[in-house]
Design a protein around this nucleic acid. Structure first.
Length: 272
DNA sequence: CAGGTCTCCTGCTAGC
DNA sequence: TGCTAGCAGGAGACCT
């Protein structure tokens, strides 16, 4: 499941592989993957556009085109592969950008949760601004900022940190890791987390994400960035570790569901 | 209006 | 061994 480090890794691979390529045709095998434009209109608008750059905001990939912006969210299992046009199309290749040089960018998504949007440039900005809060490395991300956001929040801190309009980029895996490193029980109400603990959350968020990016992300089950395999799964301390002893205190790591999300934590290190 | 629940999907797995 | 019910999950829609 791609979170910020995985999307950053995909972005880097895409810049290397498809930047400056020109789209000569599009194949849409699953029209519902395109969210805000009808299939015919999408094809009509995107053909002959050149990919001038690829950026990332939160978990969103931003394809800058000649005079449009294509946004792509990978959700659970979205992957991009660069192939030649001779390569047989795979089962879950939902849409394909064909380039003038004979290569193709294929979007593969087993669960079909991923979404593509096509916008005018300023509309794309608005769309993202409306949904996304601060990037983890934004200087405005301080304990005061989080404290203000959380002061009335009675939801579990785990849930509050998954809200993309506060900090953007954290998903289920890294939130579990960050809360473990910060020694905070994921069930604690967000409003009951102290400023000092919020400071720790920010520090650990940055460290965990930087570390994961440097290792190419986490590969659990199905995530892959153009055949690159991330290595951060070897460093996970609680996620997927149910029944294992905690590294710090030897207690048994617990798994429970918080707001429908699998949550792993050490019941003894992480204080309520 | 905050906070909860449902929905979208497929593939894997536990249980019989 | 083969079948199926249940589960997983990001984020928007919808309900209370």
């Amino acid at each position: 499941m791609p979170e910020l480090p995985e999307v950053e890794t995909v972005k880097t691979v895409l810049v290397k592989n498809v930047k400056n390529k020109t789209i000569k045709d599009v194949v849409i095998n699953y029209p519902r993957v395109i969210e805000n434009v009808y299939t015919e209109e999408f094809i009509d608008k995107i053909v002959h556009q050149k990919i001038t750059d690829i950026k990332r905001r939160g978990k969103w990939l931003i394809f800058k085109l000649t005079d449009l912006t294509m946004l792509s969210h990978l959700r659970m299992e979205g992957k991009y592969f660069l192939e030649t046009e001779l390569e047989p199309v795979k089962k879950h290749d939902l849409f394909i950008l064909k380039f003038t040089d004979g290569t193709e960018l294929r979007y593969n998504d087993t669960r079909r949760f991923g979404k593509i949007y096509l916008f005018k440039n300023e509309e794309a900005e608005e769309f993202l601004d409306k949904r996304l809060g601060l990037e983890p490395w934004d200087n405005n991300l301080t304990k005061e900022y989080l404290s203000e956001k959380f002061v009335t929040k009675k939801t579990p801190i785990k849930t509050a940190l998954l809200d993309q309009s506060v900090i953007t980029g954290l998903g289920n895996i890294y939130v579990n890791e960050v809360l473990f490193l910060s020694k905070i029980n994921p069930n604690r109400r967000a409003c009951d987390v102290s400023k000092e603990e919020l400071k720790l959350i920010i520090k650990n968020t940055r460290e965990v994400l930087e570390d994961a990016i440097s290792l190419g992300g986490t590969t659990i089950i199905s995530y892959a960035a153009g055949h690159q395999i991330g290595q951060y799964q070897n460093k996970l301390k609680v996620h997927f570790k149910k029944g294992h002893p905690c590294e710090k205190c030897n207690s048994i790591i617990k798994k429970e569901s918080i707001n429908g999300r699998g949550t792993y934590y050490c019941p003894s290190c992480q204080k309520k």
